[in-house]
Design a protein around this nucleic acid. Structure first.
Lengths: 196, 196
DNA sequence: CAATTCCATAGACCGCAGTCTATAATCTAT
DNA sequence: ATAGATTATAGACTGCGGTCTATGGAATTG
């Protein structure tokens, strides 16, 4: 590690810290890259040398949620049914996102994911969330609790899409919208079906 | 109607036509407002005098889909069950959007809907789509075909969110993704439930 | 230690969506 | 018919995310 490399890392970290501070203070859209480099006493050159975009820096924080998923999954008692586990996970996820990211954060992330030709985080099926959901589903199918009319990966995708759909709606609907209640009501219907 | 008003309307229509032509030629993101005003021989002033944003002009086209929904609903034979009607509507919608708007169009619309403080089309529960879905659901509940554990408006929201979720995923997933198959598979599971 | 290469950074610059101001053409009132 | 009000439009301007180029100091080489 040469002194130049050390300095570069320090620069990168200063930019990251400054940016995240500003984001949580003024929201993602309320902060410009110019402001970040001014406050961190660096430059556009430094910024784009270390990060590929303003959103990229935002993702850094977002990836913390993967740790949350893993921790949460491990905390689930074995005694619960697959359905209970899935519903608890979904509710915990919603509460986490609401509290840690806020509506603005979700809005920004979901808008960014729509940028063409971007390796986006949401559609990455390698995310821990997918693996966890698929595991829970597979266990449930194994025990005969869940339908086998679709594969575990299909059902995991269905569940993750349910979560995305709910979060997307949360972002676009202005009125009252309780994320946790919403996903719980959704899953209740999804598990039992809406046919009579 | 004074001659000034007539000219203004003509300007508005020239801008609209030029913009939609360019959008369908190069995609929404591939066209700048400067290009639209250059090609329509108008100006930024004229553009923003008639439309509130570049996206606004895009919505004009999008609202055609509401006519499609109404026409489609009327074409549904009474003999079908509520479930069959809903599934047919969903499939027709997906095919329409795929063919008429394309992935880029959906992507742009869904990104725009995430813009803060914008009266957005997607979250407008006055849209014909909601009314149609709610009617279909209410009929189904009346006839005992659908669950009554949720209100018709809740179920209509559930269905519309299912469609949004599927379209959103279509926009963010690059790989093969057959919209019509996807929504059909989704609804099959949603109707019967995923619990065993 | 001197010469050369390398590369992190500074900041000018670009194209974009959207705003602001000035103006000329038209409309209204007398 | 003329003076004054109105308004659709032209286009300069702003702030944004992101790119490009130049440079100075550190790393490497002999």
């Amino acid at each position: 590690m040469t002194s130049r490399q050390e300095k570069a890392i320090e620069t990168k970290e200063r930019i990251l810290r400054t940016a995240l501070d500003l984001f949580s203070e003024k929201g993602f859209d309320g902060v410009s890259v110019d402001e970040i480099v001014r406050k961190s006493e660096t430059s556009k050159g430094a910024f784009y040398g270390h990060f590929t975009s303003k959103y990229d820096i935002f993702l850094e924080k977002f990836k913390e949620i993967d740790q949350f998923y893993s921790d949460f999954q491990e905390s689930l008692p074995d005694s619960l049914s697959a359905e209970q586990k899935i519903r608890k996970l979904a509710i915990a996820q919603m509460e986490y996102l609401r509290d840690e990211m806020g509506r603005d954060g979700i809005r920004s992330l979901y808008a960014y994911a729509l940028t063409p030709s971007v390796d986006n985080y949401l559609s990455d099926t390698e995310r821990p969330l997918y693996a966890i959901l698929e595991q829970l589903v597979a266990d449930g199918q194994q025990k005969g609790e869940l339908t086998s009319s679709a594969s575990s990966s299909q059902l995991a995708l269905l569940l993750s899409r349910s979560m995305r759909g709910t979060l997307y709606d949360w972002a676009i609907f202005d009125g009252d919208f309780n994320l946790a209640d919403e996903i719980d009501g959704w899953l209740a219907l999804l598990f039992s079906g809406i046919r009579n």
